[in-house]
Amino acid sequence: MKPRYIAMRLVKTVLVAIAVVLLSFFLIRLAPGDAATVMAGQAGYADEAYMKSLRVEYGLDQPLPVQLWKYMDTVAHGDLGTSYVLRRPVLSLILERLPNTLLLDAFALVVAAAGGIWLGSIAARRPGSVLDSANTILSMLFYSVPQFWLGMMMMLLFAVWLGWLPPFGIETMGADYTGLARMADVAVHILLPGTTLALYFMASYARLTRTAMIEVADQDFVKTARAKGISERQVARRHILRNALIPLITFAGLQASILVGGNVLVENVFSWPGVGTLAYEAVTSRDNPLLLGIFIVTAILVSLFNLVTDIAYSIADPRVELGR
């Protein structure tokens, strides 16, 4: 491992975060209306004096550069500001929700990767067979169906009609389980949203694995492996799959990056208390500090995931050197 390279990447992560703040700070303000309008709307009346007092209270009356400078200053001190609507520190709001999102992501990632690789390697064994075609069709189906629709159908089927699984939330309200019982409760709740997310990515894993394995199976070193007299199983696992999995690392990194900001649609459909639902609330209530905070945290996590992906890649493929 190259500590120097990793240190440089971390510095770049900070630069990315700053760039994200700058860009989103202005982009957010392009939308008409501000927090004062929304709050006044919620309060039910909106005379000029009240609006003005709100704007003064939140510093919205000051020129943009001043607002930006003040914001950057607080961020630099590790404070992401206070939510206009929820009136709590943004950082603690995000940190409360982040573990839920990461849990859902991890579940979706593991299910998608494991299922996709398994399906893909079955399909690759006999390209053109019935199994392979069925696999391709199913993959295309899950890939092209909108996630929120798939989520609603899953909910309808498994929660409403069959009644097997809870329709929404992360745990049973008011049950106050502790320890193992609570874990089991969460596990049951994660199945629907997690699988909805996973099915979409699983399709991609299956297709990528299938293509990569068919390609690798044609390589000379696979012929060498057979010429050595090792068993077909070992040829498939140690030589074909081992090499076919390398490009999947990039995809897994990409998937993690896509998911980490919270999946707004799926989290909302299943009322999953993650960053995605938080972001949705922030957008609809023009809660700019909260939205900016989510952007910054997401940007930093995406950068870190990219770094982890690169490190994982260099471990999986000895030909790849970090920093080259």
């Binding site: 000379d220 140690r238 081992r242 030909r319």
Partner: peptide, 10 residues
């Protein structure tokens, strides 16, 4: 081609 005939990641 011995380069192609050896598994690159083993």
């Amino acid at each position: 081609d011995p380069m192609a005939a050896l598994n690159p990641v083993v």
